[in-house]
Design a protein around this nucleic acid. Structure first.
Lengths: 338, 338
DNA sequence: GATCAGGATGAATGCGCTATCAGCTTCGCA
DNA sequence: TGCGAAGCTGATAGCGCATTCATCCTGATC
């Protein structure tokens, strides 16, 4: 262990601080939660005792009795993806400013893992919960509703959220991409994606709209793997070698994949955007700075996180919310890759 | 609120489940913590009651009395940097497999923020704590020692850890980079970094060694901003325009900056590695796949996280650790950029 | 001097659970 | 038939704190 323990054999509690300062446990509690309720002299003695002993209040006990844990639970598929980490960062920053801590778990992509994680999180009695996506198991929905806490679902919109949702329509995003492709004169298209549920919906919407507009079916590469530059390069190789893709617009499910496609295209001497156009998704920082700069669907990840935090805080503080569905939209940013 | 509450007005507790199943609260507790201690029939009735009510045990109360929260606290400067998020992911995965949850906070780079975060985390009575770096305020050290829990410091090594440390020597890394530069025949060098404390130590070690080996002082650009591709491009521009850098090896504090430097060099028509060599740090996924592939100092972030988890688990389970300092080293991976 | 408002403090209570010890069956075996 | 062992269950006692209510003091007001 790191330690030789506290001051004495027993651990330091408010009662112990009280004994040192010559007051009761209650007064110590008051001194910490609302110093104005305690006389200046008492406050000074209590603070001295705290400094002396290195006392750290036990938030477990506090939360147990007050029924307020000041803990917000957050579930994301992965934190190594900037997509989610930037959102969680903005979310957490806002929550921390309001005195809440974040209990964060990765759920992967399997719904049953999410269910387990939800149960584990609820057992810590969080004051609110943030989930990614709008698809959850029936049991998850049930326990969430039963928990009686505000819940926000992120990265998507639905008319029937568990409680609140903040996101944008992936169908609309896919259609916007297809319209862009058709308007820009592309007569062929391909879809490269990592296989996650929301990417699939963008892809399907793209395919349908592109077919309507051009009469052509896009080729498709489902990588079924976390997005990475290497996977993006691989995707273009497979597109060319497996499907005989000879040019057109490639709509990627993330900027990282798009960057990989661009890199592979350059390595093969293919000209961008003349021979192939590349459309990314997310508008991550690097998108504007690579060569050629990526044309991409821009999503404000920080705004998603902030808005989610704001909505939950309203709920926690009992303020009315006129509409629990926040559609933050997206923007197509045209640069040089398509 | 999301909910209309539980089944009744009051909330569901073990006592309520017991009433439903016709047993006492204690038996419910046993059924959950060790089902073998309860008869098959009782177990079935308890499980039915739990399913019916959607009961979720209150881990706050459990932790309060058992003095085991099954919570591990983790403090990192930022989760949007893959450097830390990949490490936390590996750390969390191992811990989750052992039944622990992670309480994660971002501390930024200010030491006083870390101190606040440590106090907040300790108030939740975690079973162990993971910190980034080996520099902490005296007060932080004191409360950490007083908490009596295992502590691991990550990303660096020191002879005097608070409890455990897992990392590598940044001085050695900087020197290895300088030796590589000198051995490869570079007579000029430049240092591009984001300004964080560990990058500064690598930089200083590089500068000193490079001077010894070549008699030359490296140029330096301190970006004082989170590493990004755009910052990397900016850095090369500044290097050329402010310091008149005309060629040599550029040692970057991260692969992302290195990638930016490479991108800017290509945009300016500079040949790599003939005119300028670029050495990255971290060996992130994309390093091997960009063109030219990045030469970089490889650090196994997942191994850091895993080893940290393993060491903490040993401490928690009371197993002996012969040496609390784990130096996991680094590797120089030569590819095409230098 | 009596009365009262307001500030400062403390005693008692219980949040929901685990740990401990004690009680009750049942069964095997002498 | 008796008796200990083993299996199952319950009563009780806190964990450390916030909440509630009661108490005491001070000073202002009539």
């Amino acid at each position: 262990m790191a330690a030789g323990g506290g001051d004495k054999g027993g651990r330091v509690t408010m009662a112990a601080i009280g004994r040192l300062a010559g007051v009761s446990q209650v007064t110590v509690s008051r001194a910490l939660s609302d110093p104005s309720k305690v006389s200046a002299d008492t406050l000074r003695r209590i603070r001295e005792a705290i400094d002396q002993t290195g006392f750290v209040p036990n938030a477990l006990a506090g939360a147990l009795v007050s029924r307020k844990s000041r803990l917000i639970s957050a579930l994301v598929p992965s934190i190594t993806s900037i997509v989610y980490s930037a959102m969680v960062q903005a979310f957490g920053e806002r929550m921390r400013a309001k005195g809440y801590q974040i209990l964060l778990s990765e759920t992967g992509s399997a719904p049953e893992d999410e269910e387990d994680a939800i149960m584990l999180h609820l057992s810590r009695r969080p004051d609110a919960m943030m989930l990614t996506g709008i698809h959850h198991s029936p049991k998850a929905r049930k326990v969430l509703l039963g928990a009686g806490i505000p819940v926000v679902e992120l990265w998507d919109v639905t008319e029937s959220p568990i409680d609140l949702c903040v996101g944008f329509s992936h169908g609309a995003a896919g259609r916007a991409a297809a319209d862009f492709a058709a308007d820009a004169g592309y007569r062929r298209a391909a879809l490269v994606h990592a296989g996650d549920e929301r990417a699939l919906r963008r892809k399907d919407a793209f395919a349908e709209r592109f077919r309507q507009r051009t009469g052509q079916d896009p080729a498709e590469i489902n990588l079924n793997a976390p997005a990475s530059l290497g996977q993006g390069r691989l995707a273009l190789s497979r597109l060319i070698e497996e499907t005989g893709f000879g040019g057109g617009l490639i709509f990627c499910s993330s900027d990282l994949l798009a960057h990989g496609v661009v890199t592979e295209a350059q390595a093969r001497g293919l000209r961008i955007p003349q021979e192939i156009g590349v459309l990314g998704f997310g508008d991550q920082e690097f998108a504007a700075h690579v060569e050629p700069a990526l044309t991409t669907l821009s999503v404000d990840r920080e705004a998603l996180g902030r808005q989610a935090a704001e909505a939950l805080l309203c709920r926690i503080e009992g303020e009315p919310i006129d509409r629990p569905i926040f559609d933050l939209g997206f923007k197509l940013v045209r640069r040089d890759s398509a």
